[in-house]
Design a protein around this nucleic acid. Structure first.
Length: 144
DNA sequence: TCTGAGCGA
């Protein structure tokens, strides 16, 4: 029981900022999120790719896929690990077969415990193209 | 074997 309370508290603030604006409904000044940037802030576009963060350093790809397969058909899953160290970076990606599976995967695994850590699942951001083939693998991605 | 709040080979 105590664990669920901790999970609820953790899911309420994965990064310290999640729904602070939603609780400020008593404020007379509420900026209407009609901007595309505002939607991209908390309204990520639906995608089969999910970004999972908060993973334990010991969480592996198979563990990630196994956990997310309970809520949908996972076609691919990967835990990002450091190339030099080989250790997990604490986050990974899960790709579902359909968008609905991805949505259920998020709502099913977001704020849940995995390897003793509260993980967070959300739609992954669209990354830029890999560039031209034949070039060095590891193009300087433009963050955000 | 580790780090922690992070978007990948």
């Amino acid at each position: 029981m105590a664990l669920r309370s901790a999970a609820a508290a953790a899911v309420a603030a994965p990064r310290g900022l999640r729904r602070l604006f939603s609780t400020a409904s008593t404020s007379p000044f509420i900026p209407p999120p009609t901007s595309a940037a505002a939607q991209a802030r908390e309204q990520p576009e639906p995608s089969t790719n999910l970004f999972v963060s908060g993973l334990s350093k010991r969480t592996t790809t198979e563990k990630l896929q196994e956990a997310f397969s309970q809520f949908g058909e996972v076609v691919h899953a990967r835990v990002v690990t450091d190339r030099v160290s080989g250790y997990s970076k604490g986050f990974g990606f899960v790709k579902y077969a359909t968008l609905e599976d991805a949505a259920q995967g998020i709502q099913g695994m977001d704020g849940k415990f995995l390897d003793g850590w509260v993980i967070f699942a959300e739609y992954a951001r669209p990354r830029p193209p890999l560039g031209q083939p034949g070039n060095n693998m590891a193009p300087p991605y433009g963050r955000q």
